[in-house]
Computed example of a mutant assay.
Amino acid sequence: MLEEILQIYPQLRLQKNEGSYYRLGDDFNNGVMSCGFMRKEKGIDSEKNLQLQFYSCFLLLSGEGVYRDKQGNEYRLQPGSLVQRFPYEVHTTEVESEDWLEFFVNFGKSSFDYLQGMNMLPTKTPVRTCIITQDVIQYLIFELENLKKARVEELPIFLLELQKMVIQLHNNSITNTQCKQDAAILKAKNVLASDLEKDIPLESLAQDIGMSYENFRKVFRETQGVSPMQYRTSQRIHQAELMILSGVSIKETAILVGYADSYGFSRQFKKTTGISPAAYRSVKTSM
């Protein structure tokens, strides 16, 4: 699959270091936000016993290496490895090949703490395997280009986009060998977590992933514990929480996550979280 992607995006073979770097506020470790492509040289760019004070993750697109966590557990890295570096945790990344190319995403510790507190990031293991597809590469390139053009007043929204990017990559990842059915469900989850302002016909989605509509609904519920639409609703509400805490108005948030009016959005938000959007903002900002 990676070779096919490189044929479609030949510029990735020669991709140089290219990223976008910003900071919100005066506290770097809480305000850092960046993403981009990075090449590393064998041996020279290995990072031993490194300790970051912010959250960082990368998706390895090319190359091989080793990652060691704070307990000394060793993980082999190869194309598709999705690696998390948690704040204040010592770790080592060894670059073992000359063709190393990664796409990295960094954001502040406070953002990481929030996502972890909401169980929106899987932190039990620092390394997972992401399914690299053409859509994934398009998504990374698109978000990088948008962030490079961001105005200062737009940075809070782009901070949300970086968090969403990490969540999307994890939604597209696995921790063990998967069968064809698992891959189909992962693809469906990725679609259901995207373009939240749009309506997605489940019949068309089932057809796109090669499953019958009834079987898709049955397998999704059995493997995920919720129906496809319940999963999409949860993704909408998670995104809404981030927007509300970033200062986006409740009315605008409702539109951006796919609700026709604030009333319907507020009713669903309260049904999901147990609290209204206005009360949620008040409680969280006063903590």
Rank of each mutant, 00 (worst) to 15 (best):
M1I: 07
M1H: 12
L2W: 13
E4L: 12
Q7G: 12
I8P: 01
K16V: 13
K16G: 15
Y21T: 03
Y21R: 06
Y22P: 01
G25T: 13
F28A: 04
F28P: 01
N29D: 13
N29Y: 15
N29H: 15
N30A: 10
V32E: 05
V32M: 04
C35M: 14
C35I: 05
F37K: 00
R39M: 14
S46M: 10
S46V: 11
E47G: 10
N49W: 07
L50Y: 11
F54W: 15
Y55W: 15
C57I: 01
C57N: 07
C57Y: 02
L59I: 06
L59A: 04
L60C: 07
G63Q: 05
G63L: 05
V66K: 09
Y67M: 09
R68F: 09
R68A: 09
R68I: 01
Q78K: 12
S81E: 11
L82Q: 05
R85K: 11
Y88E: 08
E89T: 08
T93R: 06
E94N: 03
V95H: 06
D99P: 03
E102C: 10
F103M: 06
D113H: 10
D113T: 11
N119L: 12
P122I: 04
T123R: 05
P126W: 07
R128Y: 12
R128P: 00
I131T: 09
I131N: 09
T133I: 06
I137R: 10
L144W: 02
E145W: 00
K148V: 06
K149D: 14
V152M: 12
V152T: 14
L155C: 09
L155I: 10
P156N: 07
V166P: 01
I167C: 07
I174E: 03
A184D: 09
A184W: 02
A184S: 15
V191R: 09
V191N: 05
L192N: 08
A193I: 03
A193R: 05
S194P: 00
K198D: 15
Y213M: 03
N215H: 15
G225K: 04
P228G: 08
P228H: 03
M229V: 04
Y231N: 07
T233L: 13
Q239M: 15
Q239V: 05
E241C: 13
L242M: 14
M243D: 04
S246P: 00
V248T: 13
K251R: 13
I255C: 03
D261S: 12
S262M: 14
F269I: 02
T272H: 13
A279V: 02
S286L: 07
S286W: 03
S286T: 01
M287Q: 11
